[in-house]
Amino acid sequence: MSGAPEAGDDSGTGPAESDTEIDASADVDISTADTMRERADESRLKLWLLLKANRVHLAGALAVVVFCTFVAVGSSVDGFVATLQSGDTKGALFSTMLGAIITGTTLVVTISQLVISQENGPLGDQHRRMSNTMDFRDYVGEMYDEPTPVDPSAFLRRHVHEVERRAKALREAVAGSGDDDLRTEVDEFTDSVTGNAEAVREQLAGASFGTFDVLFAALNFNYAWKIFQVERIGSDHEAAIDDEIDDRLTDLRTTLTMFGPAREHVKTLYFQWALVDLSQYILYASVPALVVTGSLLAFLGSGPIPGTTLGVENVLWVVGAGFTASLVPFLLLVVYISRIAVVAKRTLAIGPLILRDSQR
C-alpha cells in the first residue's frame, strides 16, 4: 500500500512536484499506513529515542555516555593527562563552563517566561479564550450527543470513537447501493478507519496528560488521509450517491475535520507543559552544576590531581565528572527540544496536505 499524508506529517524540504500534477481520480489505496512510524518509514529505535523515551532518563544516559567518552579518550590520547594536570587548562575549562551554565539557565528561564506570558492578559482576552473553548466544546458535544469529556485523553478517545461510529453508519448507508465499486471502497475505508480507531483508543486508555502518551496516540490517528478519502469517494461516485449517503459522508468529514483542531489544541498544551517542565529541570540541575563547577575551579584549578583509580588517572575521573555535571542542563535542553522539534515538524500543517516527499 502506498504511504499516506498526515497533516504536517514530518514535512520534507525536497523539491516541489512542479511538473507532475496529482490526479485525484486516479487509482489510490483506500487503506494506508496509519501509525507515525509506518508513515515516517523510520526505525522504531529512532522514534523511541526521539519521542517515547523518558526525557530525564535519556538525559541521564547521555551524561553517562559523555563521562565514559571523556575518560576513554583521555586515557587513550598521549599527553592528554599531562595537559589536564596544568592549572591553566582546568581553570580555562571550568571558567568557560561556569559562564555557559549561567547564560544558558538565564535563556531557558526567559523562554519559560514567554510561555507563561501567553496565559496572561486583560479580561477581554481571557473572555475570548473562554468563549472560543466553550464554542468548540458545544459544537463537538452536539456530534457526540452527550457532554464533552474534560480529560484530554478521554476527549480524544471519544472523538475517535465517533469517527468510527460514523464510518460504520456510512457503510450501512451504501450497503444497498447498486454501485459495486462504491460499496467495495467504503467497506475497505471503514475497515481501515475501524482498525486505526481501535488502536488509538487502546493507546489513549489510561494515558494521562503531562506525559507524551496522549499526544503520541493522537499522532497515530491518520485523520488527514481519511478526510481526503471521504472527499474522493464523494467525487468519484457522485452519480451513485443519494441524499442519505451524502449526509453520512458529510457527517464523517465533519467529525474527521474537528479532530484536527482538537489534536492541535492538545499539542499546544503539551508544548507549554513540556517547556515549563524543561525550565524547572534546568533550574534544578543548574544549581548543583554551578556548585560542582565553581568548586573545581576554586580548589582544583590551580594544581595537579595525583594518583590513579582502577588504572585511570584521578584527574580524568575528577575533570570528567565535573565536565559532565556542567553539561547536564544542556543535555536536558537537547532531549526536550528534540522531541518538541520532531512533533512540530510532523504537524506543520493542519488538514489533508502532503508535506513529505516519501508520502507522495
Rank of each mutant, 00 (worst) to 15 (best):
M258A: 12
A262R: 09
I241F: 04
L252K: 05
E231C: 00
I282T: 02
E238D: 14
Y281N: 07
F271K: 10
M258K: 13
L290R: 03
T254P: 01
V318Y: 03
L327A: 13
V291P: 01
R263S: 10
D246M: 10
W273L: 11
L316A: 03
R248D: 10
L290W: 05
A289I: 08
Q229C: 07
T324M: 07
F259K: 03
S235H: 12
S295R: 01
R232F: 07
W273V: 04
Q229D: 11
A285E: 10
I305F: 03
V266R: 07
I227W: 00
D251K: 14
L310F: 14
P288Y: 03
G311V: 01
K267F: 11
A262M: 14
L316K: 00
E238N: 11
S302K: 09
A240W: 08
N314C: 07
G234P: 06
T308M: 12
L269A: 15
G303P: 00
E231G: 09
Y270P: 01
D242A: 07
L252E: 07
S279L: 02
L283R: 07
L275N: 10
A262P: 05
L300S: 09
K267Y: 08
G322M: 07
E238M: 06
A274C: 06
P329V: 10
T308W: 11
P306I: 00
L283I: 14
G301K: 01
D242M: 08
G303L: 00
Q229V: 12
L327V: 09
Y284H: 07
A274P: 04
Y284A: 13
L275D: 05
W225P: 00
V328N: 03
S235I: 08
L327C: 12
Q229S: 12
P304E: 12
S326V: 03
A289G: 15
S326K: 01
F271G: 09
L296A: 01
G234M: 09
H237M: 11
L252M: 09
P261T: 05
F259H: 13
T268Y: 11
T268L: 12
D246Y: 07
A240E: 12
A321Y: 05
P304R: 04
T324V: 10
T268R: 14
M258C: 07
D236A: 12
S279E: 04
A321N: 06
A262K: 08
V291S: 04
E244D: 15
L249F: 07
F299Y: 14
V318Q: 02
L278M: 15
Q272Y: 11
D251Y: 04
K226N: 09
V315P: 06
I282H: 01
A285D: 08
L249N: 04
R263I: 07
F323Q: 05
S302A: 14
H237K: 10
D247C: 05
S295T: 15
A274V: 08
S295P: 00
